[in-house]
Structures are given as C-alpha cells and as structure tokens.
C-alpha cells in the first residue's frame, strides 16, 4: 500500500470520530443536554489537560498502571509457560486441558468478592483478578501456536544436531511467537478493562476509583476524564506492543 492511500484511509477513519465529537459538541451547545449531564467536549479535554499536570492525577494513573503491568506480566509468564508445557508434554496436556475448559469461560469478575475476602482491598486482589482474566487468551494462543509448529521445522533442527530438550527453546518457542503475541494483545486490552473495573468496585485510588468518586458527586466532567484516559492508555500500550510485534516478527510472513 502506498503512502497516499494510507493517508486517505487514516483521514477516512478520523471522520466518524470527528463526527461523534461534533455531535457531542452540538448536543451540549444547542442545549439539548444540560452541562451536568453531558459537558461539552472542550470542557472535558481541557479538564483532562489540566488534570494531567497535577501530581494527584499522575498518582492515580501510576497506581492503575502498576496493577495493570503486574497482573499482565504474571499472566504472560504463567500463560506462556503453561501453554508451552501443555503443547509439548502429554501428561501436562491431559491435566491442563479440562481445567482450562472449565476456567476459561468462567466469569472471573465474579471471583472478585472472594479475592477481596482472601487478599484484602489492596493491590493484591486487583492484580490477581487482572492476571486471572488476561491469563487464558495468552495461554490458549501459546498452546495453539506451539502445537501448530510445522513438524518439518523441528525435523530440520533435529537433523542439524539440535538435542531433543533444546527443541522447545530453539524451535517451538520462536515459531510460536506470532501466536503468543496475538494472545498478549488480547490479554493487554483485557488487563486495561479489568483493572479499571476492579478499581471501580473497590479501591481507594486509581482511574476507576476516580470515576466512582465523580459519579457519587455527579461531577459529569470528572467522570469522562478517567474514561478517556484509560482509552488513551489502551491505545498507547497497544501501539507499543504493535511496535514490539513488528520488530520481533520481521522475518515472519504477514498474517
């Protein structure tokens, strides 16, 4: 695709977003909705800009990000580890498969009250919830990627003198990387969502908590700010992961 087509596509994509903002502006400036219900976009964005400078808000973002990263990292380590083990070892596979079948569709948020009771209201319960939710897409896509590795790739490596126990790290893992990264991308979006929800349900800080506080006092402007922030965070993190992906997968054919 040439650069001009790309630019025109980006422009096209901006239209609905611009339209949505314009509609939003119109509704509030023509007085269809009072400012207390729907503050105009200008107000929301200037509030966001102003908030970004305050150390208080930075602290909220930091605690949300901390929980997000901690939970996501645990999910990546466990997911890739268990996924690889299940794909390469029949015994692990026989144990892991049914457990995953039961736990993957289980609505993990429902476990949150139990986590609160067991781990307390601090970071631990939220991190655990994020990890539990992000784990399964990463685990399943690792498992899928590792069990789909072309047999002849493994044979080629074995013929070149690779010992059996090194095949996992020299062939299976690198060959599964595209699939693992797909799982990570889903897991990352889930982490953003879940950390926010957990903070809304019970927390003393973080973006989710900001939203709840604002809702209690009917501060509509302050309700929009954390929502827009989490959306932006999601976009930035997704962009970073995309960058990592295109670096790691520079050899792989486009999917």
């Amino acid at each position: 695709m040439n650069a001009r087509a790309l630019t025109s596509e980006v422009l096209l994509g901006i239209i609905p977003i611009a339209l949505a903002v314009a509609l939003w502006q119109a509704i509030s400036s023509f007085g269809y909705a009072p400012v207390t219900l729907l503050p105009p976009p200008g107000l929301v964005f200037s509030r966001l800009a102003q908030q970004l400078g305050t150390s208080n808000f930075q602290h909220e973002i930091a605690s949300t990000l901390f929980r997000l990263f901690a939970g996501f990292s645990i999910a990546v380590i466990l997911g890739v580890g268990i996924g690889l083990a299940a794909a390469t070892n029949p015994v692990v596979n026989a144990v892991v498969r049914p457990i995953v079948r039961v736990l993957a569709p289980l609505p993990k948020v429902a476990l949150y009250p139990a986590l609160l009771l067991l781990l307390g209201f601090g970071h631990e319960s939220k991190i655990t919830l994020v990890a539990a939710d992000a784990l399964f897409p990463i685990l399943l896509s690792t498992y899928y990627g590792a069990s789909m590795v072309e047999q002849k790739l493994i044979w080629s490596a074995m013929a070149a003198g690779t010992p059996r126990r090194q095949i996992l790290f020299k062939v299976v893992l690198p060959a599964a990387v595209p699939s693992i990264l797909t799982g990570c991308r889903i897991g990352l979006v889930i982490s953003c969502i879940v950390v926010f929800l957990a903070e809304m349900i019970s927390s003393t800080d973080g973006l989710g908590h900001m939203l709840v506080t604002a809702a209690r006092t009917f501060q509509a402007v302050d309700m929009f700010v954390p929502l827009i922030t989490i959306s932006l965070l999601g976009l930035i993190l997704n962009g970073l992961l995309q960058g990592l992906r295109s670096y790691l997968l520079r050899g792989f054919p486009e999917v």
């Binding site: 072309e150 002849k152 044979w155």
Partner: peptide
C-alpha cells in the same frame, strides 16, 4: 523438504 522448512525468524 518440499516445504523448505526454513526458520522464518532467521
């Protein structure tokens, strides 16, 4: 092999 089976990451 017919399928080449080259390591795509190398």
């Amino acid at each position: 092999f017919q399928e080449f089976a080259l390591f795509p990451w190398k």
